[in-house]
Design a binder for these strands. Structure first.
Length: 283
DNA sequence: CCACCGTCCTGGCTGC
DNA sequence: TGCAGCCAGGACGGTG
């Protein structure tokens, strides 16, 4: 499922195709996909140009500007459109289709572009969401910091943990704590940091906190580096697994010590870890 | 403040 | 071979 590295990969792939393009007609085949209202999206988006495409957490963020007057500020003067945001959730995919391409079986929203092509939002499970808002912050305002941002330092991470007493796994999945980690990378981060998923933040030693901070950044950076290829494999059902140390590897040997990887459920989520490397108590 | 549960969805898997 | 039933999982809202 798309987490920060996958979304980053999609953004990098789409950016050269989308920036500068203007939206024409929008077609919605599953209205609930559009969290801010399908009718409003279809009415409002045509005529807006993509000024920039960024990632915030697991959101794709299309910053909009008026297609005609280059000076218009999105969201200014009560303008109804300013930012288009898309969250892929479990199975969402975005592709730029050539002119005349028909909507696929799972296409939920089709955005026609001014060059005749179309951006298709396909989503088998219909969990993905599209937002059109005057200000992106209306959607992203609740998110915690970007784990790969320069200012997400060890000191900043320590400050984030002050006064909290939470299990590590649910904490890493909490987007208001930190933006971008999902179930796969949360497990991979904890494996790399050699910390048990149920360890509580208030029991971490300074050294363990340092390891966790480093593991978050290293795991995500490495995943982004490798995602030119692995992302496609994941969706093609290929051996995406080869990049993963513990996720979905129950019973297989830990790459570090050979102990069989264990699967449990933490906070309703399948959770994989090495019972030897990630012992419950600190050591 | 924190944990836990139900909801949304459907392809793919399991088991008979 | 066919099919019923279950599962995964991100985010959110409600409850304890």
């Amino acid at each position: 499922m798309p987490e920060l590295p996958e979304v980053e990969t999609v953004v990098r792939r789409l950016r050269p195709e989308m920036v500068g393009r203007a939206f024409a007609q929008v077609r919605v085949t599953w209205p609930r996909t559009v969290a801010t209202g399908a009718d409003q999206l279809c009415r409002t988006l045509p005529g807006w140009r993509v000024a920039a495409l960024e990632r915030r957490g697991k959101f794709l963020l299309f910053a909009l500007a008026r297609a005609t007057a280059g000076r218009a500020v999105p969201g200014d003067g009560g303008e109804p459109a300013g930012a288009l945001l898309i969250h892929l959730r479990m199975t969402g995919r975005l592709n730029v289709e050539p002119p005349g391409a028909p909507a696929g079986r799972f296409t939920r929203v089709a955005f026609d572009l001014d060059d005749g092509r179309a951006l298709h939002f396909d989503d088998v499970r219909k969990f993905g969401r599209v937002f059109l808002v005057p200000q992106a912050e209306a959607v992203t305002g609740m998110l915690g910091p970007e784990p790969l941002a320069e200012d997400f330092t060890l000191a900043a991470f320590r400050r984030l943990l002050v006064g909290r007493a939470r299990q590590l796994k649910p904490l890493l999945l909490d987007q208001t704590f930190l933006a971008g980690l999902g179930n796969i990378y949360a497990d991979e981060v904890l494996y790399r940091a050699r910390l048990h998923p149920l360890r509580r933040t208030d029991t971490l030693t300074p050294e363990e906190t340092r390891r966790l901070h480093r593991a978050i950044r290293d795991t995500l950076r490495k995943a982004i580096e490798h995602h030119g290829t692995s992302f496609d494999w994941a969706y093609a059902g290929g051996n995406y697994q080869e990049l993963l140390n513990v996720y979905d590897r129950a019973g297989q040997p830990c790459p570090r010590c050979g102990t069989p990887v264990v699967r449990t459920v933490v906070g309703q989520r399948g959770t994989y870890y090495c019972p030897e490397c990630q012992a419950r108590a600190s050591r």
